[in-house]
Design a binder for these strands. Sequence first.
RNA 1: GCCCGGGUGGCGGAACUGGCAAACGCGCACGACUCAAAAUCGUGUGCCGCAAGGCUUGUGGGUUCGACUCCCACCCCGGGCACCA
Length: 797
Amino acid sequence: MEEKYNPKHIEEKWQKIWEEQRINATQKRQGSKLYVLDMFPYPSGSGLHVGHVEGYTATDIYSRFKRMKGCNVLHPMGWDAFGLPAENYAIKTGIHPRETTEEAIKTFRRQIKRLGFSYDWDREIGTHTPEYYKWTQWFFLLLYKNGLAYKAKANVNWCSSCQTVLANEQVVQGACERCGTKVSQKDLDQWFFKITDFSNELVDDLKEVDWPESTVLNQRNWIGRSAGAVLKFKIRNSKFEIPVFTTRADTLFGATYMVVAPEHELISNLKPQITNWEEVEKYIAKSREKTELERTTETKEKTGVELKGIKAINPGNKEEIPVFVADYVLAHYGTGAIMAVPAHDQRDWEFAQKFGLPIRQVICDRYPEPTCPILKEAYTGFGYLVGSGQFDGIKSGEAKQKITEFVGGEMKITTKLRDWLISRQRYWGAPIPIVYDPKGNPHAIPEEHLPWLLPTDVEFKPTGTSPLAQSKELFLRVEHIFGKGWTPEVDTMDTFVCSSWYYFRFVDPRNNKEFASKELIEKLLPVDLYVGGAEHTVLHLMYARFFTKVLHRFGYISFNEPFLRLRHQGMIQAEDGRKMSKSLGNVVNPDTIVEQFGADSLRLYEMFMGPLAEAKAWNTQNIAGVRRFLERAWRLQNKIVKEGSHKETVLHQSIKKVGEDIEELKLNTAISQLMVCANDLDSRESVSKEAYKTFLLLLAPFCPFITEEIWERIGEGGSIHNQLFPTYKEELLLESVARVPVQVSGKVRAVLEVSPGTAKEKLRDLALRHEKVAKWIHGKEIKDVVVIPDRLVNIVV
RNA sequence: GCCCGGGUGGCGGAACUGGCAAACGCGCACGACUCAAAAUCGUGUGCCGCAAGGCUUGUGGGUUCGACUCCCACCCCGGGCACCA
């Protein structure tokens, strides 16, 4: 009798041995390269979350499986270590963020190792180390030198609680993504990355990647590309004109007024002609005070003020129309001004109703028709033009182009994407490698001075300016290198900059001459499988794609998408179905589960919960099920005999199913099959060693510890994880008996047991003569008999 | 409002290309072991019915010999976007 399965003992034992033998380092194998990557974690003080474990287990199973198939798998792990929580903690306690971050990394590393993930620890990286952020700064300079990083005064999102500006992507429904504080607008001089330069590629190249459809759609919607035209409206008695962007040039003749955004520069240009300037100024001031949230979601009630004394000329029908300023028009989209067509745009309709402006229908869904149906709301569909002079009767689609040409406008593509604001008025981030001369002009810090170190002599209490502004060390360093009067940039970079390129660093993590060698990049990248939460859909994925496209444009790399295949792990909720959170006290700590059940059980359980991408609720009781399965797998040791004569149908079906399921990351059904296989083996008096070994090899990617231990106990040499994955024999997949159900008018009445491949005619005969069938067809006319060999017979009466 | 994703036993979930709905697991019931309990193992388990049989994949309709799967309409849940001209 073997001793009892003791996960604690064997997991500690093998963790140590693997570490000593560095079994997980990327090894040379015969097959092709494969880069399997997890979204690296932010090492938070609360430690590893069961959600991390889910994604990491999936990629670990995939990596181990692929190694057993002979692939050279690159599977690294690192730390997205800069960020606000550590700094906020420093404000509270005075402990330096570096200390708390290093401490958190230690915990994460210990927890991850304990779970048996096969990361190549020789490649570990941390974004907060100077060796790493040297290259983050190098990327900044690459962008800067190519005109893709620029400083500009802009109306930016400000979070008063985090005391920093935010990128648009970090503003969720008008509030800070991190802390939920309402975001206000501020005019500040900030650094931007010109991601808009890549908006077309960012949309078009989505065709090349194997990503979840919803993620692709989210990216596409965020970029929000739309095709339209820019038309110019002249101002009466003025040299100025107002260009507008429209996707509906066909409705030009229905434009009965115009609207410009409160920030529009034209308003001040036209000041001398505006007769109600005071009122206009008041309106602008009021709308600037409003937060983005108030301007958009709070009330959809339209507000605005007419610019009295100003008239624009509709270039279609030469009619003079009024011009309004209203905040339902956004300054940063299109040209910041619109032609308003109340009959065919719901927002314009509402505005026109409120201000008593004419509503003129110019699109009708029927033609020719003496009268169009009377509108009760804006008609936004397409149709035929009416009331549009020489264009009457033309279809919308055709009219768009014709009218644009007629008024001398031009076709234009516009996107919602805005440039990426990367300045942060915070300490714990990569310093922006810029210095200012005594006149205040920015200069790139020469590469020889990189890494441009984060100073240590700062206070963490927020003062409204960047903590680096207090650093004597930093100012002295600048004076020393650049001369008197020179000053440093005191903002740091958004942490998303650090995580936009880390997958490059893993291929060559100790290189201090380049961010990674060109040869290794081409050999190992792009990432073949990338797994992480769906919540990073817009932010991280968009930025990472942008960085890759920058490198591609400047000839550093030959590919232009970083992640070929992307899969998300779903959220793991608490037992009550709510979100796991510290404040609710319902967070499951992986350590506790490992203590209680073992790492192999935890891995298995999380994969068995359901499909990887779906949200799933935690249920500790269910872990007992997978643990029982492992106990059974363990006990099978007692049944081993040297040779057996059993026909291994289920075993070979399992080799096929498990292999195919891992390939598609359907790990829940792969585990079901492993259970079926174990049940099958356990139902016998004895099991051949060959069969048992095969079963263990199938289980090895899922449960590295128990399989390694048994492998040793049954006297096999070497690590089980260096073996090849079993292959199945086609001829062993078929059962010796095919069970073919017989239906009478769609209801199963009998089952035929025949040898597989029995001919149609034979099946038909057997079915019709079957005693259980006779009862149902007796005295009835048989209209048809459908026979699908090995599958079913359906007698239609 | 718009765009995705999803509704299957008491629960988590399975089901190839339209072919025996409910694999696998949890729970539950009964049994074995035990002085007893836990653990473990075995058997059973969609619902109604003593049975024969009937019913069942959110609701209603349709296509088909046959629908969880395809089509139409509706209801509910989850996620994303939200005055983007």
